[in-house]
């Protein structure tokens, strides 16, 4: 039950943090424009507190019911995880995605080559595969190594940033191949890689052609290539 408690407390803390950040940014003044955001912020704060309160109450009630549970329910983020497979990033430093990684995560099946493949994608996230999983819970096919989520997140973010900076075709081909490699958990044979690059080229150029030539969307282009 305590993982539920921890989840709810993280949820409440995030909501309250967002509310606080937005609250300090109310540098606007027209009366009609102040009412609504302020109302929303107040309600959010109340809901955040309610989530935390209900979680604590429920945890203490459950704690009383089954005595094997955690002794002090109010301690919040310090509680050790109880449910197998429901592990959290240490210290609660995690933003939402990291917390999200927990349920059902398994470190099984992380071969060396796979890690190497993900290294560049996950480079700006230090925790790529540093923890061994407790128990292989995934199905026979479902290899869900720990680095997969940060790698996927970093890859998508990098792709989105590169989209505007390097143009759609250049960033598109590179990121397309990187994603394909990530999904296959490794680059595979050179032949495979060649095919991947070919497919990426065709898809990216097709998208580029359709959007710029047919739909007249002025896509960002690479300065080097001109497309």
């Amino acid at each position: 039950m305590s993982s539920d408690l921890r989840r709810d407390l993280i949820c409440a803390a995030l909501i309250l943090a967002v509310t606080a950040v937005f609250w300090t940014r109310q540098d606007f003044s027209t009366p009609t424009d102040v009412i609504f955001p302020r109302f929303v912020l107040v309600v959010l704060a109340v809901l955040g507190l309610a989530i935390a309160g209900m979680a604590v109450v429920r945890a203490s009630r459950n704690g009383a019911a089954s005595d094997g549970e955690a002794p002090e329910a109010g301690a919040g983020a310090e509680l050790p995880p109880q449910t197998p497979g429901m592990r959290q990033a240490p210290g609660g430093r995690s933003a939402a995605p990291a917390a999200a990684a927990a349920p059902g995560t398994s470190g099984a099946g992380t071969s060396l080559t796979e890690r190497a493949a993900a290294e560049d994608a996950a480079s700006d996230d230090g925790k790529g595969g540093d923890e061994a999983g407790e128990e292989p819970v995934g199905g026979p096919r479902g290899s869900r190594p720990r680095w997969a989520l940060p790698a996927a997140a970093a890859l998508l973010l990098a792709w989105a940033a590169a989209f505007g900076l390097f143009g759609i075709t250049l960033s598109g081909v590179v990121a397309f191949v990187a994603t394909a490699i990530l999904i296959r958990r490794g680059p595979g044979t050179p032949r495979r890689l060649l095919i991947d690059v070919g497919v990426a080229l065709v898809v990216a150029l097709f998208c580029w052609a359709v959007f710029t030539r047919v739909l007249y969307v002025p896509l960002p282009v690479s300065v080097l290539l001109g497309i």
Binding site: T212, R213, V214, P220
Partner: peptide, 20 residues
Amino acid sequence: GLTAAALPLPLAGCATRSAP
């Protein structure tokens, strides 16, 4: 379908934001 949407538009134009 995609081509039909394009019928009105001259295909000569290349709509790049930052062309050289």
